[in-house]
Design a protein around this nucleic acid. Structure first.
Lengths: 153, 153
DNA sequence: TATTGTTATACTCTATAACTATA
DNA sequence: TATAGTTATAGAGTATAACAATA
């Protein structure tokens, strides 16, 4: 017999990941990590990690946005945004101004330095897209975006 | 004029996330987090988080797999797997046996308890799929899986 | 009474260097 | 010399509780 009761335990030569590959969560996580890897490399020149880029981009496209609004839009928790915003302010990328109608809130505004950096950073982000979805056709990339949004919206 | 030089800073009523939504990384991350949220809820009954589930599943489907092989397959770092495997062993879900041909390596094997738990857990994982991709048709879900794999493979 | 922003803090996840034993 | 597994440790990311100021 090939497998006697006294035989040594089996070893694995080719890893079977076929089951995990049927799961949406597994594939979404692997794809996200793969894209983020490219993002980290290409965005290192601006010292912007994914969440920092998202926050800075949101402030750039929504001048006067509040901390709370950013948290809602990006699914962040308020305490975790404080340090990030302090760092962006210290780097001269954003300014905190009083909110026009709510004394509790603080409006977040991009500085000119932020605007010019983001103009370059968004060009780099476009390159990340090309790299990350290099194996996809334009139509496939468009379909993928649509389906991902359908999942989380 | 609507915006005089002395006007107060603007506030934002509707947050514009349209730019971020054009980015693959942003959407992949949001989708992955949304699916993981469902996964965490449904898998809490087994005390299995995403990576623990993936590791346990891999060991179940690949008896005798080594720590290094799991790291390669899942993109984990060896030091971060040690504690996880110790915990699974302590819970009586896996066993470490000597590798049949490599004295440095350790073969990882599922216990009967692991096998029966995973049979139930994989049924729950199927329910997670239904919940997480509830807004997608069967064809769309299949397409999404294929495109995600094309990105990270 | 509820909300914004904040502090303090803890927990998880991820990353690097260095050791041991075996190949 | 290189690799498998491990230890120790540091850093990043994420979580809850509680507070002051304002609504």
């Amino acid at each position: 017999m090939a497998t006697a009761s006294t035989s040594s335990p089996p070893s694995v030569d080719t890893i079977d990941t076929s089951y995990l590959e049927t799961l949406l969560g597994y594939n979404a996580r692997r794809a996200a990590l793969s894209i983020i890897e490219v993002f980290l490399q290409d965005m290192a020149q601006y010292d912007l990690r994914p969440v920092e880029f998202s926050v800075t981009s949101l402030i750039t496209h929504n001048p006067g946005i509040t901390s709370r609004q950013i948290c809602t839009a990006l699914g962040l928790l308020p305490p975790n945004l404080v340090g990030l915003l302090n760092a962006l302010e210290k780097r001269g990328l954003i300014e905190r101004k009083p909110h026009p109608s709510d004394g509790r809130a603080v409006g977040l505004h991009p500085t000119p330095a932020c605007a010019s950096m983001m103009q370059a950073a968004e060009k780099t982000a476009a390159q990340v897209e090309v790299q990350a979805s290099g194996k996809l056709t334009t139509a496939e990339r468009k379909t993928l975006l649509r389906l991902l949004q359908k999942v989380y919206r």
